[in-house]
């Protein structure tokens, strides 16, 4: 499908066991792929070359080819235990990381065929979130027992923090400029650290910066915008809040009333935001005006994950 080259694609997945691919600017569904009959979609990410879409869920990790008309996966992971909560790719597509409730974050060598596991990190608690540092060698993780980790994938070097007791970290994020790390928990709090790269090429140094009482309920996702000037937090309270990283004050609040906002994605120029919510509808918001510009309707149940890869055209 040359469509992937020409048009921008939004991928969504959710509780209806399907992954849908949308033409981003029109809202038309291009194709629908069956996921695993027994699993929701926990996270979606595309390979940097945009040809493949990776999806993870309960006891499964699958990669789909976006260029063929086939809706069956091209790579399937066997023997997966429990939920796989996050996955993502290194910027060259050399490797992929997965985080799971089996306490482990794994690095998968994607160059070799078939892919094989090249590194493992044990968090000693179910891992809810993982995020790759822009320096491509550090991974931030958040676990169900409230631990936040930063791990240098080349070694066993890591940092562990517990910002709040008896809270489960739901998502972690590192700003594309490498300045901040954010971790959001199920109590509605979001913690910010400033990151400083060490001159000796060692693990970045974390300095607690601040705590935002972002939502009254569960935070599901936090993400920095590509220009690093915004942080978005989505919550079970039916909102997605945008915070200015300048001073971490609230800038915008987008509302999908009575529904959980499960996932978000920015456009490359940080002017647009996609949201996935439990009403089964993905929305595209114009941040400047807070207006929903497009709706992506077709899922029969909650959308829990989305993936959007944009690019900068020109200055």
């Amino acid at each position: 499908m040359e469509a992937t080259e020409e048009q921008l694609i939004l991928a969504t997945g959710g509780y209806d066991h399907t992954i849908k691919v949308w033409q981003a600017h029109t809202g038309n569904c291009i194709k629908t792929m069956r996921f695993v009959d027994t699993s929701q979609v926990n996270a979606l990410d595309r390979t940097p070359d945009k040809t493949r879409l990776a999806a993870c869920g309960y006891q499964c990790i699958r990669l789909y080819d976006l260029e063929s008309n086939s809706t069956t996966p091209v790579i399937n992971f066997d023997g997966v235990q429990k939920n796989v909560t996050r996955l993502g790719f290194q910027e060259d597509g050399n490797w992929m990381f997965t985080a799971g409730e089996d306490h482990r974050v794994r690095i998968w060598d994607m160059i070799s065929a078939p892919p094989h596991c090249s590194r493992v990190f044990d968090c000693q608690a179910p891992v809810n979130a993982a995020c790759l540092h822009p320096n491509q060698v550090e991974i931030a993780m958040g676990s169900q027992n409230g631990g936040v980790y930063l791990w240098d994938v080349k070694s066993v070097a890591h940092e562990q923090l517990i910002p709040e007791m008896d809270a489960s970290i739901q998502d972690v994020a590192i700003s594309p400029d490498g300045h901040y790390m954010a971790a959001a928990n199920n109590k509605g709090n979001c913690y910010i650290w400033s990151l400083n790269s060490s001159p000796s090429q060692q693990l970045s140094i974390l300095k607690p910066k601040m705590k935002i009482s972002a939502h009254s309920r569960y935070i599901l996702r936090c993400k920095f915008s590509p220009d690093s000037r915004l942080l978005v937090t989505t919550s079970g309270d039916g909102t997605a809040c945008l915070w200015k990283t300048e001073d971490f004050t609230k800038w915008r609040e987008l509302s999908v009333e009575n529904y959980w906002v499960w996932d978000v994605a920015f456009s490359a120029d940080s002017k647009w935001l996609f949201t996935a919510s439990s009403d089964g509808v993905a929305r595209l918001w114009k941040l400047q005006t807070k207006s929903p510009e497009r709706k992506y309707t077709g899922h029969t149940k909650a959308i829990t994950a989305l993936s959007f890869k944009d690019e900068i055209v020109a200055d």
Binding site: Q7, L8, A24, H25, D227, S267, A268, D269, K271, W272, E293, F308, D310, E311, I312, V313, A314, D315
Partner: peptide, 11 residues
């Protein structure tokens, strides 16, 4: 900032 994404352009 003057940056423009493909999405903005298509929209």
């Amino acid at each position: 900032e003057g940056v423009r994404s493909k999405l903005s352009e298509q929209l």
